[in-house]
């Protein structure tokens, strides 16, 4: 993946010096390992800030919403699908964008690696084709890369960007998976009481920090329903009922729009697998409407349109 860095910088330098775009949005290295952060570059002399590695899991589409300038944006498979969603939902115009497509190998799961280190502080993390080598004061640990991919990357079937103006490398081979929804089906097989208890348990640590919402490229409403006070849609406390209502509604607002980019789960400070909810909706949208969000530029999401043949089995 490191070979992408030079290519991204070259393209960004060219775009900025030829005045094709006003800014380039990409990633730069963070101040601590495994924390690459978004960067907005507007001068050709600053492009060497840009970087690419296995920690670029943040969805850059979040930084495009309602911008009015011309933007070069670095996009993985999932980012590109969210860009499509943004275009469909009138949050940005295609003409404003120069999409630098990045065929993605999957991002590594920082939280699981940190958990495995059990409190040891990593100072350097190097990822090669098969391994993640983590070093720190007095220790070196190796992890299998495929096993420590972010969960959504391990079940991803759209690693290559769906829209782009230029690719930084050859497309990568897409994964062939037996069942992307095994975790969802496992929960579906439980009894209602077990399901309730299961979600009580996974939602218990939620602090209502809304990091999942803020990281999500779909959550661009000027005022989110959780912040509304007239009317107040739901309680603002960490009462289990309020927490559950929040997670239920947050997920439902993403129905038919979510690309499973994993930004929400990555952002969660208490490691709640919030994707279990959006994934269930993704599965249902696929089953009921045969729709995958962000794949075609001019089709509105299924819950946004009425068709006479919409499934209505739930109506008596």
């Amino acid at each position: 993946m490191l070979e992408y860095v030079g290519k991204i910088r070259d393209i960004a330098r060219r775009l900025l010096s030829e005045n094709k775009v006003d800014v380039v949005i990409g990633f730069r290295q963070g101040t601590i390992p495994m924390m690459s952060e978004p960067a907005v570059v507007s001068r050709p002399e600053d492009v060497d800030e840009l970087y690419w590695d296995y920690n670029c899991g943040i969805n850059l589409t979040n930084y495009l919403t309602k911008r009015t300038d011309r933007i070069g944006v670095v996009a993985k498979g999932c980012d590109s699908r969210n860009i499509v969603t943004h275009i469909v939902e009138n949050q940005i115009k295609r003409e404003q964008l120069y999409i630098i497509g990045v065929p993605c190998h999957g991002m590594i799961d920082r939280s699981r690696i940190l958990a495995a280190l059990d409190g040891q502080e990593p100072t350097a993390v190097v990822v090669n084709d098969t391994e993640i080598v983590v070093t720190g004061p007095g220790f070196e640990r190796k992890f299998n890369r495929q096993e420590y991919l972010q969960n959504n990357c391990a079940t991803c079937i759209h690693r290559n960007p769906v829209v782009y103006d230029e690719l930084v490398a050859e497309k990568v081979e897409e994964q062939k998976l037996d069942d992307r929804y095994a975790d969802v089906k496992k929960i579906e097989a439980m009894s209602p009481d077990e399901k309730w208890a299961f979600f009580d348990k996974i939602l218990a640590p939620c602090l209502r920090c809304y990091a999942c919402r803020n990281a999500c490229p779909l959550c661009y409403c000027p005022t989110c329903f959780v912040d509304e006070s007239r009317p107040q849609w739901l309680g603002k406390s960490i009462d289990p009922t309020d927490v559950r209502t929040f997670h239920f509604l947050r997920a439902y607002h993403c129905a038919g729009r979510c690309t499973d980019c994993g930004a929400c789960e990555r952002a969660c400070p208490v490691n709640i697998p919030v994707r279990l909810l959006t994934k269930k909706l993704n599965m249902d949208v696929e089953d009921l409407y045969g729709f995958e969000p962000g794949m075609v530029p001019d089709v509105r999401p299924p819950l946004d349109v009425y068709r006479p043949d919409d499934p209505g089995g739930f109506i008596k």
């Binding site: 929960i187 209602p192 309730w196 208890a197 997920a251 439902y252 129905a255 909810l277 909706l281 109506i315």
Partner: peptide, 21 residues
């Protein structure tokens, strides 16, 4: 789909009904 998600989260099937009358 909303009913689906509610039931996925543990609401009993049969608690929520939809009809058009």
């Amino acid at each position: 789909m909303m009913k689906g998600l509610l039931e996925y989260m543990g609401t009993e099937p049969g608690r929520l009904h939809f009809s058009w009358i």
